[in-house]
Simulated scan of single mutants.
Amino acid sequence: MARGSSAGAVVAGLTAAALAVIGFFTYQASAAQDRAKAGSSDERGGTGGSEGPREREKRERETNLPAFSGVGERVVYDLDRDRVWLMGRDQEVKRTFRVAPSSVDPQPGTYKVESRAPHVTGSDGVPVENVVRFATNQGTTIGFSSALDGSLPEAEPGGQTGGIRERRADGEAMWLFATIGTKVVVVR
């Protein structure tokens, strides 16, 4: 009987070790997916880890969350870097990406998402989707959107547009994240 108990203990130990290995690989796969969600293709650039220290430092400087941009779940928009961060409640960067600015900038400050529209024609005449509006300045409504054709606008001299244009994948992420009432922090 003692011999059978010891064989059972060995099998139980091996089973526990196998489950631990499977759990570890599952955790690694999940972490890799979370890292992939944190940035769009323009941040990753397909470098595959081959970037040098200077390139990595430059990318980190560009993508680091601005100081004094608040806490909690929010959208952070840096006017100087033309970059957005989607921040989770736990200060985790859910996604960061570059945008094409509107010709009328919002003033630095804290706002809330006021309205949304799945499809409209932008103030520049381009059909857009995933419109998330949060501010008004100089009589112009300001919000994030992405063009159906994937274009990013060129600034028109003298034009007053409020559309902060995103790539389509980034616009989809914004749409899913920034519901009515979501905080938007604009910094310089």
Rank of each mutant, 00 (worst) to 15 (best):
K37D: 11
E172W: 06
R74N: 08
R168G: 02
P53G: 04
D80N: 13
V104S: 02
D90W: 04
F24M: 04
R167G: 00
D82E: 11
A178I: 03
F134D: 02
T136N: 09
V131K: 06
S103T: 15
G181V: 06
D78H: 07
V184C: 04
Y77N: 01
G52F: 10
A7K: 15
F25Q: 10
A67F: 05
D80S: 11
G158A: 13
T47S: 09
D42N: 09
S151M: 11
F68H: 14
R56A: 12
A9W: 03
R81Q: 06
G52A: 10
Q91L: 12
R59A: 09
V71N: 07
S69Y: 06
S30G: 14
Q33H: 11
T136Q: 12
L148H: 04
A18K: 11
E172L: 14
G143A: 11
E92K: 15
E172K: 13
N130G: 14
G162H: 03
E51V: 08
L86Y: 01
A67S: 14
A38E: 05
K58L: 14
V113D: 01
A100G: 06
T161V: 11
D42L: 07
F144P: 01
A29D: 13
S103P: 00
D42E: 15
I164T: 02
F177S: 08
V104R: 01
V113A: 05
Y77S: 00
K37T: 05
G158K: 13
E51N: 12
G4S: 13
R95G: 00
F177M: 12
T141V: 13
G39A: 13
S115W: 11
V84S: 00
V184Q: 02
V185A: 02
I180N: 11
G150Y: 04
W85F: 06
